[in-house]
């Protein structure tokens, strides 16, 4: 006979609902994040403008600080001086360079979006592939080329045209940038003041570290992109490739994308070389 005492002790305790203290805060956090993402999506145009301004802030801020220190003026004066210089440079650029660059853009755009030219590019690429000593599945390859070249060319061209026709970029970004440059420290201080005491020092340290490293990274990327753009344009001009400015600028911008950027930047130059020289030799 089984001892009832043993039975009672060996029985599992009455099942209680499993405790999940993280469940409700987790659901609330997910809801808040969803609402935030939805809100940011709704105002994505402003967010993009703000992000562009932020990128420019990281590039321009050291210049303003150097100006402040070099000519011993206050920050507002240094910013205004920078804006004045930018206006002069942009004005001179519009007056002297834009007509030439604009015509390069127009010609490159019309050339790249012309269906006859696109077909010609594909044909010449096929020829090149056929001449290649390496065995390439030409049938598939030609299909890929015609499909992707047409798509990529029209996208690249329309992107470049749209980039320069964005009115908001030229008006709103400098406006946001001015306030970021002037009151950036105060804004950062205001955000940090909201952090609870327990996490205050850690947040301050974290924000400072991220700020320094992100700034250095962005400045480095911009410097590399500018150098690649300028050197590509110079190199293409020397070897006689037309639209060297447009291609150089695209190469510089594409270089901002890790790994794929340099390859993508070389594509327009290769296509133009194929169209104009029937060969990749000039490159």
């Amino acid at each position: 006979m089984i001892n009832p005492e043993i039975m009672s002790t060996s029985l599992p305790p009455p099942s209680s609902p499993p405790r999940r203290p993280w469940l409700i805060p987790g659901i609330i956090a997910v809801l808040i994040m969803t609402v935030c993402v939805w809100f940011l999506w709704q105002i994505s145009e402003i967010v993009i403008l703000f992000l562009i301004s932020l990128l420019m802030f990281y590039v321009v801020d050291p210049l303003i600080t150097s100006t402040e220190r070099a000519i011993k003026v206050n920050r507002t004066a240094a910013i205004l001086l920078f804006y004045l210089l930018c206006l002069i440079v942009v004005g001179l650029g519009l007056w002297l360079v834009l007509p030439a660059v604009g015509s390069q853009f127009q010609t490159a755009y019309s050339l790249l979006t012309d269906e006859t030219v696109q077909a010609d590019i594909v044909a010449r690429a096929n020829e090149l592939v056929a001449r290649s000593p390496v065995e390439v599945p030409v049938e598939d390859f030609s299909g890929y080329i015609s499909e992707y070249a047409a798509l990529a060319l029209s996208n690249i061209a329309s992107f470049l045209i749209n980039l320069f026709s964005l009115f908001s970029l030229s008006i709103i970004v400098p406006f946001i940038l001015f306030f970021l440059l002037k009151d950036g420290t105060g804004m950062k201080k205001g955000i940090i003041s909201l952090v609870p005491n327990r996490f205050f020092e850690m947040s301050l340290n974290l924000i400072d570290t991220v700020d320094r490293h992100l700034g250095a990274y962005i400045r480095g990327q911009m410097a590399v992109a500018s150098s690649v753009g300028a050197l590509s344009a110079l190199g293409l001009w020397i070897v006689g490739v037309p639209y060297y400015f447009v291609i150089g600028m695209f190469a510089g911008l594409a270089n901002l994308i890790p790994y794929l950027g340099p390859v993508a930047g070389a594509i327009p130059a290769m296509i133009l070389s194929l169209v104009l020289f029937d060969d990749l030799t000039p490159l």
């Binding site: 005491n197 327990r198 020092e201 850690m202 301050l204 340290n205």
Partner: peptide, 13 residues
């Protein structure tokens, strides 16, 4: 009773 900073944590200022 609130702690301003803790021993062994990195100092900021």
């Amino acid at each position: 009773g609130e702690t301003v900073f803790y021993q062994d944590e990195p100092g900021v200022g």
